[in-house]
Nucleic acid binder design. Structure first.
Length: 797
RNA sequence: GGGCCCGUGGUCUAGCGGUUAUGACGCCACCUUCACAUGGUGGAGAUCAGAGGUUCGAUUCCUCUCGGGCCCACCA
């Protein structure tokens, strides 16, 4: 019996606090393990609405799987690695990392992290997310941080494995270089931005021929011009094939060639190929076997190859050379151009292409394997698979792993100063080669120099399933639980987090890292815009929770739309509406629990009908939940709750359940009460993963059990439903139609809904309500209900 | 340039060969009906983006166009 009149936010908070404190969802390590590789949110900002909703979904999965008898590994992780922390430290202390020295800078980063609030964790707890634990530690299921020693040690250990398999090499190649971050970045970290730039038309001399005009956006790279290209179809330039042009200012002879890469209708239709203006150029040089002249150094300044531009930053150099060309009359014209320029995904700086020595992880030779994995794994939604396939197909270079940064996992390598031999650290320890010596010595006895570079943070992130499954920490559990069951993540990080993880786990285990991949879209603001700090439209889930509660937010998240197929708009109005649903559920429960259950029950047809309907709902929900679809079942259960159960069935059997006038037998009364409870109990079970707090409260008050420890309902035995099962849907439709008609008629006659009726005559189409006659009589205070061949329902007063 | 997703009442959504085209929010009218006014009942509101095609029949399948979003790519 429910005592309280309403469901309150205070009660909701009490329950989530309890979960937070008591760890009721601790991993119990039974036979069937279900593991979720949660995406650790970044700690430097509190989580926003998008995180909240995605974690709510993951919580649906976790809670459902527990009800299905799985031991669910659902870890809380926090991402604390990488550049954003460093940038925050540089900003706060007004320094540059390389000025203060490594040791000191790392301390500054730690300071920033100490100040990072644990608001995110609080929000998760308040949302009722059933993490295996909220306590931080190394044990399986405990909360973890990506900069912890044990996480970084694992990163290094897996690197050592890959090194020993011969999959890592060091090489000097042209890389994507971010001048802002002062490090190499991988293709996966390159983004693009539409920008306005200027394109300069420059005069080149040609041997024994008239000058040609070449258009370029990168005049400062003139010294690196290696060849000049025109389209083979282009009649204007055909005669120049094989001749040589002289670069202006630098007076270098370069060959003129026909090549399909040149588009006749762009610029002047003839272009200079320099090392390196963009990714195209890099591939061209590689394909043609041309020797590159690198003009830009690691400091972002022009080097001595650039001649008179030496020492200038790129921007400045461009200005300088344009002025010089103009002065000499070599600049024909300048135009504006919309250009898609490669930028660094994190710092948004334009990428430069320079030659650097870096460590690479082989990935090109795994393309076929990766495609096979991509085809084999189950994707929810299926259409997201293509994103991964496209990315794999487009790979053209191995993965540069090393970064010239600080707050990240160090590369556990030492180099012998004498013989150049590379010594790799031993497993079982977290190594910091820049400050300590390895256990081994070089064979030649030479002095060892510790590596100062660190790993790409994706190298850390891509080991998350191994970390959570206890690889290297708990061999027994790892063996039992690998591969990880589910990877839930956003579609924008398919090319990074998902791809890199699949690659690395394949290289280590020769198996797919996951069974299922759940790819979600995003939460937009009420106007359908992306949430962004700069727009100021970021919705704080804490504010929503304060106003409407986490249960309303959770219910809304389930029914707003299908997040694996489209973006969801966040609407306070609709979230508010779901707190009404919670209230409705509360009141229904209060009503049902006001009847004393028990005694021999005889099920009337209306009861069988409801049970049959409830069972079909259970079947549907079970099937859909197991495919990560909570949207449609939630909508259906919600509809059942409001319409079929509350408005119609409840009104129909109220009379029988009260049985004040003794019109029904005790058994029939008990039948109504049994069915009310049957439906309520099953509804609570179906809703438990979605709205865990209110269902827990109601379930324990009425049934004296913890709803989250129950098995997911199985479809009731068919004899209960009996013949009502057949045509149940049509019967329910008839019932709804008849009730509506009677209510409408009474209202039109300005009668109370309880006003007595002499007779209701039902037409042929509602003949299927035969078995419900007694309940209908009671519900509408009708003396008699009969059937005729008429088309319409008739009512006699 | 290529690929993927999406265009259904004011807003958001279901349907995916035959429905009087779901449902929610909002709107209007009436109602203290004993679980609930965070309620009840009723109502207005949709040429299912546009044009072709396949079909006896298309919101549902195909093609194209327009509009929105995302991803990839070698336009200097």
């Amino acid at each position: 019996m429910l005592k309280e009149n309403t469901w309150t936010l205070a009660e909701e908070k009490k329950i989530s606090d309890e979960w937070h404190k008591k760890e009721p969802y601790r991993l119990d390590r039974k036979e069937k393990i279900y593991s979720i590789d949660t995406p650790p949110p970044y700690v430097n900002a509190p989580i926003h609405m998008g995180h909240a909703v995605v974690y709510i979904y993951m919580d649906f999965f976790a809670r459902y799987k527990r009800m299905k008898g799985f031991s669910v590994l659902f870890p809380l992780g926090l991402d604390r690695n990488g550049l954003p922390i460093e940038l925050a430290a540089e900003k706060k202390f007004g320094i540059r990392a390389e000025q203060v020295g490594r040791e000191k800078f790392l301390e500054m980063c730690k300071k920033i992290l100490e100040e990072a609030s644990n608001e995110s964790v609080k929000t998760f707890a308040r949302l009722g997310i059933s993490f295996s634990s909220y306590k931080f530690g190394e044990k399986i299921g405990q909360a973890y941080e990506t900069d912890s020693e044990s996480y970084r040690r694992l990163s290094q250990e897996t690197f050592i494995d890959l090194w020993e398999k011969g999959l890592v090499y060091e090489a000097s190649k042209v890389v994507n270089y971010c001048p802002g971050c002062r490090t190499t970045i991988a293709d996966a970290e390159v983004a693009y931005e539409e920008r306005e730039t200027e394109i300069y038309h420059i005069k080149f001399k040609v041997e024994q021929d008239k000058d040609i005009i070449i258009a370029t956006t990168r005049p400062e790279l003139l010294a690196a011009c290696a060849t000049i290209l025109f389209n083979p179809e282009d009649k204007r330039y055909k005669k120049l094939a094989g001749k040589h042009a002289i670069t202006p200012l630098y007076e270098k002879e370069v060959r003129i060639k026909a090549h399909p890469i040149a588009k006749s209708d762009f610029g002047s239709g003839i272009l200079m190929m320099c090392s390196f203006g963009d990714l195209t150029d890099i591939r061209f040089f590689r394909d043609e076997g041309l020797k590159a002249h690198i003009l830009i150094g690691i400091d972002g300044k022009m080097n001595k190859n650039a001649g008179f531009l030496e020492g200038m930053y790129v921007k400045q150099a461009r200005k300088e050379i344009v002025a010089k060309l103009k002065e000499k009359g070599l600049l024909v014209k300048t135009e504006n151009l919309q250009q898609r320029a490669p930028i660094c995904e994190r710092s948004k700086d334009p990428i430069e292409f320079i030659a650097l020595e870096e460590y690479y992880l082989k990935q090109l030779e795994f393309k076929e394997k990766m495609l096979q994995v991509a085809h084999k794994i189950k994707f929810y939604d299926e259409s997201s698979r293509q994103i991964l396939i496209d990315w794999i197909n487009g790979l053209s270079e191995d993965w540069p792993l090393s970064r010239r940064r600080y707050y990240a996992t160090p590369i556990p390598i030492w180099k012998c100063k004498k013989c150049g031999e590379k010594i790799i650290g031993k497993k079982g320890k977290y190594w910091q080669p820049w400050r300590e010596a390895p256990e081994k010595k070089c064979k030649c006895g030479g002095e060892l120099e510790g590596e100062t570079r660190v790993f790409d943070t994706w190298f850390d992130s891509s080991i998350s399933p191994h970390y959570i499954l206890g690889y290297g920490r708990d061999a027994g559990f790892f063996k039992k639980s690998f591969p990880c069951t589910l990877r839930p993540q956003g579609k924008e990080i398919v090319r990074t987090w998902l791809y890199y993880t699949l690659l690395r786990i394949w290289q280590l285990e020769k198996k797919s890292a996951f069974e299922d991949i759940w790819i979600h879209y995003h939460i937009l603001d009420a106007q359908g815009r992306k949430m962004a700090k700069s727009v100021g439209n970021v919705i704080d889930p804490q504010k929503i929770i304060e106003k409407f509660g986490s249960e309303a937010l959770r219910f809304w998240a389930a029914i707003e739309g299908n997040i694996i197929k489209q973006d969801l708009r966040c609407s306070e109005e609709r979230i508010a509406a779901e707190s009404k649903t919670l209230n409705k559920l509360w009141n229904i429960s209060k009503f049902v629990s006001s009847f004393k259950a028990g005694g021999r029950a005889k099920l009337c047809e209306a009861d069988k009908l409801m049970i049959a309907h409830m069972d079909s709902l259970i079947k549907f929900a079970d099937k859909e939940y197991s495919g990560y679809n909570f949207f449609e079942p939630a909508v259906k259960v919600r509809h059942f709750l409001w319409e079929i159960f509350a408005s119609h069935y409840l009104e129909l059997v109220k009379g029988r359940a009260y049985n004040g006038e003794g019109k029904f037998s005790k058994e029939e009364q008990a039948g109504a009460i049994f069915t009310l409870n049957y439906c309520l109990e099953k509804m609570l079970l179906l809703l438990a993963p979605i709205v865990p707090a209110i269902t827990e409260k109601i379930f324990s008050d009425i049934y004296d059990k913890n709803v989250h420890e129950q098995e997911f309902p199985k479809v009731g035995k068919s004899e209960k439903a009996g013949s009502a099962g057949r045509g149940a849907k049509a019967k329910i439709e008839s019932l709804l139609a008849v009730n509506s008609f009677v209510w409408k008629t009474k209202r039109e006659k300005q009668l109370s809904l309880k006003a007595p009726l002499k007779e209701i005559v039902l037409p042929k189409e509602h003949e299927n309500l035969h078995g419900l006659v007694e309940d209908l009589k009671a519900a509408h205070s009708a003396e008699k209900i009969s059937f005729s061949s008429a088309k319409e329902i008739q009512i006699r007063f």
